[in-house]
Design a protein around this nucleic acid. Structure first.
Length: 425
RNA sequence: GGAGAGGUGGCAGAGCGGUUGAAUGCACUGGUCUUGAAAACCAGCAAGGGUUAGUAGCCCUUCGUGGGUUCAAAUCCCACCCUCUCCGCCA
């Protein structure tokens, strides 16, 4: 959520920033609603003040043993008037809130303007895509050759966009997750957390998936419903919901491994082959809560932590800044890491690292105590995949495939593979 | 699943229809004392919103959440959520 004070005082500047996203913010309409709200709220508070004063007088009169009937008569009409005005105010406030919840975050100056991923700005490439002396297969064929990646079985159980993995391949994914968790906890200073995979709607409002992206979520039929987390970002970031963190405890750095569940509504026909885009996938997520002045630097560091995983696995990747048309709804600035997939002869997203500024913190009322003012102030939140395990598995299979159909285990995963250095058919 | 207890400020914990935004303690901040520190003592210390040039005043809201009773609710009534204890069951 954007600071309502900023919306009131600088609606036109906000509108022009959001225009870079091709988002049309009706600044004039917002101002109109705000003015109505202002005068209504003054009315309501004046009435309420009158009521409070009368009630106090009645109390005093009663204490003195006086007759209070004339006083009661004088406040008779106050109640209904107040109730009416209060209702109108509540309706107006809800309307304004809906507008505010629907506004995407302001963009960082670094974010390039553009309509789609074509306009994303590449900032670096790491590693050389390997030259194959045979026709490189994609992970679907490699997995089939190994006999351990089964989409048909998954389809019988759950339909499309699911996978079944067996044996060494299943273990390889677990090894990837282990490597990531160990690296982030031991080398990058993150605290490992285990969190719920089912959350209430409030948590999703806090991180910004709701109300706008209801259709992307899976939810249960309970009342109230549970939502399956689309990313660990949701439960982990909500750890600081409605809380005040002392300055000395910042930055908070959490890493969590969770499955992620996405309906993928609206992406019919995209990445239908293989396990690039699944309803369920494993991910290791990095989350930071930092002082507002630190978030730019924290984004660089956090992205570097995700890059370290790809470097350990010696997977070629490139790093891009998402442009205004491709960046997420709540993000202030986002780096995507795209790993080289020989089967597709393309770089594909494997991590997305974002600085949310105070956007999520405002929705969650997540604050820290600023020692300079002594007051609780909104902190900044960041998150990034460190990295998506399912896609990392795809990348390992495709980049480490051999002519005979086997797959070499990257050195970094040896400690987690019980001595197995090769996956063979 | 059965029985009971409880949800109040950063934390602990009183209050149980009117002067309580809320006693007290801890923590925190400032001061006195001290060579310095500790201790002791004194003082201050919730958040959100409105109005405003204002971090000044004034006003409104907030004692788990939502409804209700009342001129007036942290206090009474109803529903729901959550936590804790005991029993049962279970991974």
């Amino acid at each position: 959520m954007i600071d309502p004070k900023l919306l009131r005082t600088a609606a036109d500047e906000v509108a022009s920033n959001l225009a870079r996203r091709n988002f049309d913010f009706d600044a004039a309409g917002y101002k109109r609603l705000e003015e109505q709200r202002k005068s209504l709220q003054v009315d309501v508070e004046t009435l309420r003040s009158e009521r409070n004063a009368s009630a106090k007088n009645i109390g005093k009169a009663k204490a003195r043993g006086e007759d209070i009937t004339p006083l009661l008569a004088s406040v008779e009409s106050l109640g209904s008037k107040l109730e009416e005005a209060d209702k109108a105010l509540a309706a107006l406030q809800a309307e304004i809130r809906d507008v505010e919840l629907g506004l995407p975050n302001l963009l960082h100056d670094d974010v390039p303007v553009g309509n789609d991923e074509e306009a994303n700005k590449e900032v670096l490439r790491w590693g050389e895509p390997r030259k194959f002396d045979f026709e490189a297969l994609d992970h679907v064929d490699i997995g089939a050759g190994l006999g351990s990646l089964d989409f048909d079985a998954a389809a019988r159980i759950s339909g499309s966009r699911f996978a079944v993995m067996q044996g060494s391949l299943a273990r390889l994914q677990r090894a990837l997750i282990q490597l990531m968790l160990d690296t982030h906890t031991a080398e990058h200073g993150y605290k490992e957390v285990y969190v719920p995979y089912l959350v209430q709607s409030e948590a999703l409002f806090g991180t910004g998936q709701l109300p706008k992206f209801e259709n992307d979520q899976f939810k249960t039929t309970d009342d109230p419903p549970f939502y399956l987390i689309p990313t660990a970002e949701v439960p982990v970031t909500n750890l600081v919901r409605d809380s005040i963190t002392e300055a000395g405890e910042l930055p908070l750095k959490y890493v969590a491994h969770t499955p992620c569940f996405r309906s993928e509504a609206g992406s019919y026909g995209r990445d239908t082959r293989g396990m690039i885009r699944q309803h369920q996938f494993e991910k290791v997520e990095l989350v930071q809560m930092v002082e507002p002045g630190e978030s730019d630097a924290a984004l660089e560091a956090l992205t570097g932590h995700a890059e370290a995983i790809l470097q350990k696995l010696e997977l070629p990747y490139r790093k891009v800044i998402l442009c205004s048309g491709d960046i997420g709804f709540g993000s202030h600035k986002t780096y995507d890491l795209e790993v080289w997939l020989p089967g597709q002869k393309a770089y594909r997203e494997i991590s997305s690292c974002s600085n949310y500024g105070d956007f999520q913190a405002r929705r969650m009322q997540a604050r820290w105590r600023n020692p300079e003012t002594g007051k609780p102030e909104l902190l900044h939140t960041l998150n990034g995949s460190g990295v998506a395990a399912g896609r990392a598995l795809v990348a390992v299979l495709e980049n480490y495939q051999e002519k005979d159909g086997s797959v070499t285990v990257p050195d970094a995963l040896w400690p987690y593979m019980a001595g197995q250095k090769k996956l063979s058919p």
